[in-house]
Design a protein around this nucleic acid. Structure first.
Lengths: 195, 195
DNA sequence: CCAATGTTAGTTAGCGATCACTAACATATC
DNA sequence: GATATGTTAGTGATCGCTAACTAACATTGG
């Protein structure tokens, strides 16, 4: 798969940083070059244009996580434990790289480039499908209550996850995301446990 | 409270429409004037500058809904029915004015203007508090299960609501939001009903 | 070994397009 | 004849991006 040079990774990082600070409108070639400390045209030695930088941003976070998350499916964990793993995995990633949080759930950033917007929805769908699989497996084996439609459970898990991350971001990381995640998982367990 | 002329309302509407179509980057004075059918400077007869248009957008949706939602608190409904009302009210609003959906949960749009960003978080907090009140009341009177922290229930309700609206928006309104809302509420009822 | 040549990664200067916004003027309404 | 609301033309700033050039390094040929 696509590999990036150190300089490219630095540019990607700086771009994410800018978006995290002030949204997509702050991501200009000028701001980018200033943050990195090289001239504006120099960036074009490493990326064809601005939109390919966005593409790279999308690339780096999606590839990394997608495979990791898929792996959960093939573990020996119970359904409910898989969901917990899913949540913890996300929160750990954001904890490790907080700027990601401000980009990853802001689909608006990419909606100007149609193919990027499509990729975003595709990833979201993929995650949805994985969670859906986990849930309906769990319902069959009886460790997740089966009186609620799987897609509603998925909506609850993903929706809550997104909202917690959003609040964490907008409160400037005023709480520990992983702690909050653990505590939230306990509630999710109670909610999903079979009657 | 602040009233708007017909022309101002038309401008606000067009601005929301543009943001709905292609994000904040599509909201330019040129696009705006083109969509309305007047010249660019004419807009400045009705708004001091671009940022006051954003402010007006924020104004119109927040004032309208905030009071309506607060009213739920003082009805005779049970806790769980109040939550359902809360959800239905939101979905009805978006169904009636779909473009709102693309603006209201995109806090990024306002984050360049600090005072607007602050207002956004304030509204979010207010909604959170209202829901929190509903939930803990419901737990006391015994029609909402009390083995789950209220703030987790609030996160679940608001997070799911936001995600459903987001999906509805990105799927270009491919499903009926109110139907989905009703069906989702059934699941929420099951989840929240006392053991 | 070392000069010739090519590549990489940076620079300064500046392109046309577009940004939000303004000055000066026109028209319509009461 | 003022007031409200529009127009045309144009402002400086900034947008993404390119042209032209250069210093440092790599590769190759005699």
């Amino acid at each position: 798969m696509s590999e990036y040079t150190d300089r490219q990774l630095q540019i990607i990082d700086a771009a994410i940083e800018l978006i995290a600070q002030g949204g997509i409108q702050q991501l200009t070639m000028k701001n980018l070059s200033k943050l990195i400390g090289i001239s504006e045209p120099a960036i074009y030695r490493h990326f064809e244009n601005k939109s390919s930088i966005l593409e790279a941003i999308h690339d780096t976070f999606s590839i990394g996580k997608q495979t990791l998350v898929t792996d959960i499916l093939y573990t020996q964990l119970s359904g409910i434990d898989k969901i917990q793993k899913f949540i913890e995995m996300h929160f750990a990633a954001f904890h490790q790289k907080p700027t990601l949080a401000s980009v990853i759930f802001s689909e608006e950033i990419f909606q100007n480039e149609q193919h990027l917007a499509d990729m975003i929805t595709k990833i979201m769908d993929k995650f949805r499908l994985i969670l859906m699989q986990i849930v309906s497996d769990g319902q069959k084996t009886g460790n997740i209550r089966n009186d609620i439609a799987p897609h509603h459970i998925v909506t609850i898990v993903m929706g809550s996850l997104r909202l917690i991350v959003k609040r964490w971001h907008f409160s400037r990381h005023s709480f520990d995301l992983r702690d909050e995640g653990l505590s939230f998982c306990e509630s999710i367990r109670k909610i999903l446990e079979p009657a």
